[in-house]
Design a protein around this nucleic acid. Structure first.
Lengths: 194, 194
DNA sequence: TAGAGCATGTAATAGGTTACATGATTAG
DNA sequence: CTAATCATGTAACCTATTACATGCTCTA
């Protein structure tokens, strides 16, 4: 029962309307890019499989001077397959979190090095939060009345919530790291006086 | 300049002391498993490469009745390589977040289905939080005095912070979803009266 | 006596990115 | 005139997991 997630991601995008592989890539970019993405190397082969499995249909729009557009549309079977996946409970994910791994080995470098690392990470999260705020406003206006809107806002809030928590964590961690440098200095001075 | 993260993860584990491949696997399990893990299929080949590159040494402990223990130890070069990676700024990561992807396509299933999904996800996070709390207490006692302790606690707090934020997000999302069902009922009743 | 732990490793397979190939059109 | 956009797709290459192969010892 090993399921290929990319397949469902693409089925999901197709649930928003018929599209070409090129469109799908763009759609990933401007919708779920914050928490999911697919490359052409995945998209095109999977689209072929979807058609072979009867989960999508392909219709060809002839064009001159550029490759014909292959437009894919979900079939009923495809929609059912998507729905089955959507209601299947998610399993706990063990993502790879680089900043945590680096900090775990923080002893191997100076406290200042760790401070720099966390400060840099904090900046990334800060930018991310600004982007999410802008995205939220943009979506609210752009997609007003769209039945998907409430769900889209929930995913934006997911990012918002996590990112804010990370910024808070950065602040706490930085303050802990700063205390560590302070203690070191005290120790050094105490040693000097002896 | 493509860097293999697994290599650095293993260098990091070796920075805690000389170990065999088997030990490394166990060590991943009981230390960074919450945010990083490696399989034997990665560990053994990488250990060979580390020796070939002069980043680690291998010494063989002969044993009877079972394969000889190959014990790996960081060289100075290996430690420098690790340090170089530790101070290199992390890049923004685009992780794949399944719950967010599923919710993004929430329109495709019933509100109740989405509620179930989020409730289930909340339970996962709740268990995770309990585990993290236990881990924190355990580490504080077990590793008291260990110079790595402050860094290890920072990574535990990372998990703590994110997991709490996710639980909060679940609560907010559930309340939004519940309002959606309430509205639907109102609409239905309004229709019935006409 | 069954199962967990010790201990090595490889091969098959799956999952995924990047670069390449092609080439017209359009906007700045 | 340059860069981006449109539009398809494949091949080479990483990365990573899982299952397999081997076989002893210790614990419940």
């Amino acid at each position: 029962m090993k399921e290929n997630k990319s397949k469902y991601a693409i089925l999901g995008i197709l649930s928003l309307g018929p599209m070409s592989g090129y469109d799908i890539k763009k759609m990933f970019q401007k919708s779920v890019a914050k928490f999911w993405n697919e490359s052409y190397g995945q998209i095109y082969p999977i689209l072929n499989r979807l058609v072979a499995q009867g989960l999508a249909t392909r219709s060809v729009e002839k064009q001159e001077g550029r490759p014909n557009r292959h437009v894919y549309a979900l079939t009923d079977k495809g929609r059912e397959e998507l729905q089955r996946w959507l209601i299947a409970p998610v399993e706990p994910q063990i993502g790879r979190i680089e900043i945590a791994l680096k900090l775990f080995f923080g002893q191997q470098v100076s406290v200042l090095d760790n401070i720099r690392q966390v400060e840099h990470f904090r900046e990334i999260q800060h930018r991310e939060l600004e982007e999410l705020k802008a995205l939220e406003e943009h979506v609210k206006v752009e997609k007003a009345g769209n039945p998907n809107l409430p769900y889209w806002l929930m995913t934006v809030k997911y990012g918002h919530q996590v990112t804010s928590a990370l910024i808070q964590w950065c602040d706490e961690t930085l303050s802990a790291l700063n205390k560590m440098t302070a203690k070191k200095k005290q120790k050094k001075e105490a040693t000097r006086k002896r």
